[in-house]
Nucleic acid binder design. Structure first.
Length: 585
DNA sequence: GTCGCTTGCCAC
DNA sequence: AAACGTGGCAAGCGAC
């Protein structure tokens, strides 16, 4: 298939409008129409639509939005088939902001299709089209190179601009024709989940997270002051910059400290582990300064500068951010806000900044050990499944088995060791890494691991099975992959690293379960109050009078003993801010 | 000035 | 035989 014969149009006159309508009339007997937008930038809610395009496998039409917005709205109103777009959430969000409601249940995303079918390939439209439609697609312009123009200023009638924009709908449509049958055959559930979740996520992005601005500003000021003053002190005292690791190391070496830990590229490392072990005012100041700088720059800075008139921030969420099908988030990433810890008490201020809107309460619901449950279920490991069904804490139960000591309780250090062993299994860590994480001598680590394998033989069998299936497929089909038991979606490893597939399967299954639950929660009416998804946790900002209904739905939905051989369990907490820890009973 | 690399660090 | 996974983001620094 090539791109010869493609016809691209820019709507400039009434004749063009008639021609477009004529084409649409002919299209009506088909079931789908591709669409796309060109915008002034990439931020939904800030940037605006400049061009709206529609097309099929042959024709692509670019409609200047300002001049002909009524035309595009009219097409949307009258088209009763499906809509196809690549990364549809972006265009639907942009159009929503311009006052055009795309019929979301009828919108299908080709980017989701490629991610479901071939998660190991680039999902960028140009690359997908080059692979599936025409190799030349890859070399088509994607940037405004060698011009003074930006996406906001390039003239609408500049040929390369509008024609490539129109072409994108042609490419999208052809990709759709190729991928849709494959999706139906291979992994219809995976597509349905991702596509449905994309609209739930779009709504979260629009709803936004509410910031206590005064509090955030006050804390940011205090942290920034410390960062500044400590840097001044370091410069005055040692004549170096507090942020320049090489200089800090040099001063500490002159003071008699020795360094041996190395970075990936072989330089001397100066990370928090190294600094924490050095009892010297410079080391302690650099460490403290780094921590507060992190809080100020990475978190509080965004909170105080990127909020709208209602004190809301609107992060961008990528529904298929990770190769495992986990979501990711940016501007800012609210999935990695620091948790309160003994080591860093100041960290709790960050979650305290995310507060309920006036009259609302924050509600947080997270799965308990969902990845361990996926492991137990996929491996069909009865000892673990029994432990999950029992009344005592899962890791206490395991620790009692591993150490053969029924007196072990939750605070016993051996529980943490066994917990580390569990996550080492999930991540594919070796004995060395596991021992280091658990903080035990390597011989002890080896013994725990051996005992673990003895107690949970089906886990070991599962690990070996996954790996050998993937290696087999690499030899036979060229791709080392296994399929998610929940969605049938592929998980693909880099060749020679097939062991990671155990992790991908577990992480991917947990992500799929979480997404299915998001759909259930949305169906129960909670979608309008969801703020942030955090892998196995959902954060909501709920009107006070709805709180008890929401808590009921959360508990009903997230506690589930029908999906797997192990029950899924979840707990609900609530309060004024995300940092609140009070359990909802 | 911008860009890309390195280093470090936050979460699940 | 052995192999800790997935992300986003900021600061420093050299290269252009």
């Amino acid at each position: 298939m090539s791109l010869q014969g493609v016809k691209l149009h820019l709507v400039e006159s009434m004749e063009d409008v008639f021609a477009l309508h004529e084409w649409l009339g002919y299209r009506r007997e088909h079931h789908a129409l591709a669409f796309d937008t060109e915008t002034t930038g990439l931020i939904v809610g800030r940037d605006r639509v400049r061009l709206a395009q529609v097309g099929d496998g042959v024709h692509g039409w670019a409609i200047p939005y300002e001049t002909w917005s009524g035309l595009f709205a009219d097409i949307v109103r009258r088209w009763d088939g499906h809509w196809i777009a690549h990364n549809a959430k972006f265009d639907v969000g942009m159009l929503d902001h311009m006052g055009i409601k795309m019929p979301r249940p009828f919108v299908r995303d080709t980017r989701i299709m490629t991610h479901c079918l071939t998660p190991h390939y680039s999902t960028a439209l140009k690359n997908v089209a080059a692979r599936l439609v025409d190799a030349q697609a890859a070399s088509l312009q994607t940037e405004l190179k060698n011009t003074e123009w930006t996406w906001a200023t390039v003239p609408i009638d500049y040929g390369p601009y509008w024609s490539y924009a129109a072409l994108d709908t042609v490419l999208t449509y052809r990709v759709y024709e190729i991928l849709w049958p494959k999706v139906q055959e291979e992994c219809p559930d995976a597509f349905e989940i991702e596509n449905t979740v994309s609209w739930i996520i779009e709504r979260m992005e629009r709803y936004g997270a509410h910031i206590n601005l005064a509090y955030a500003q006050e804390k940011l000021g205090a942290f920034a002051r410390y960062v500044e003053e400590s840097a001044a002190w370091v410069r005055a005292t040692y004549g170096i910059s507090a942020g320049a690791n090489a200089s800090v190391i040099r001063v500490l070496q002159e003071a008699g400290y020795e360094f041996d830990k190395q970075t990936a590229s072989g330089a001397l490392a100066l990370d928090k582990e190294v600094l924490g072990a050095i009892d010297h005012p410079l080391a302690q100041t650099v460490l403290q300064r780094r921590q507060l700088q992190k809080l100020a720059s990475t978190y509080l800075g965004h909170f105080t500068t990127e909020l709208d008139a209602d004190h809301l921030i609107h992060p961008s969420i990528n529904v298929l951010g990770a190769r495992t099908s986990r979501m990711s988030m940016e501007r800012p990433n609210l999935q990695n806000l620091p948790r309160k810890s003994d080591r860093q008490p100041a960290a709790e201020t960050v979650r305290n900044c995310i507060t309920a809107r006036p009259g609302n309460v924050m509600m947080m619901c997270d799965f308990d050990q969902v990845e361990m449950r996926m492991l137990a279920s996929m491996a069909n490991e009865q000892s673990m499944i029994r432990a999950f069904k029992g009344d005592i804490d899962f890791f206490v139960a395991l620790a009692r088995m591993v150490y053969g000591d029924e007196s072990i309780i939750k605070s016993d250090v051996r529980r943490q060791v066994v917990k580390n062993a569990g996550y080492a299994t999930i991540y594919g860590a070796g004995v060395e890494k596991f021992s280091k994480t658990a903080g035990i001598p390597i011989e002890q680590g080896r013994a725990v691991r051996a005992r673990w394998d003895e107690l949970f033989p089906d886990v070991l069998r599962f690990q070996r099975q996954v790996q050998s299936v993937a290696v087999q497929r690499r030899m036979n089909e060229g791709i080392p992959y296994v399929r998610c038991p929940v969605t049938q979606r592929m998980q693909v490893a880099d060749a020679g690293k097939e062991y990671v597939l155990v992790n991908f399967l577990i992480q991917g299954a947990a992500a799929a379960v979480f997404k299915k639950k998001l759909i259930e929660l949305d169906n129960a009416g909670l979608g309008e109050w969801m703020v942030v998804p955090v892998h196995d946790e959902i954060i909501l900002d709920v009107p006070r009078e709805e709180a008890s209904y929401v808590a009921d739905v959360l508990k009903q939905t997230m506690n589930d003993d029908t999906m797997f051989q192990v029950p899924l369990s979840a707990s609900v907490s609530w309060g004024d801010s995300w940092g609140s820890k009070e359990e909802w009973k």
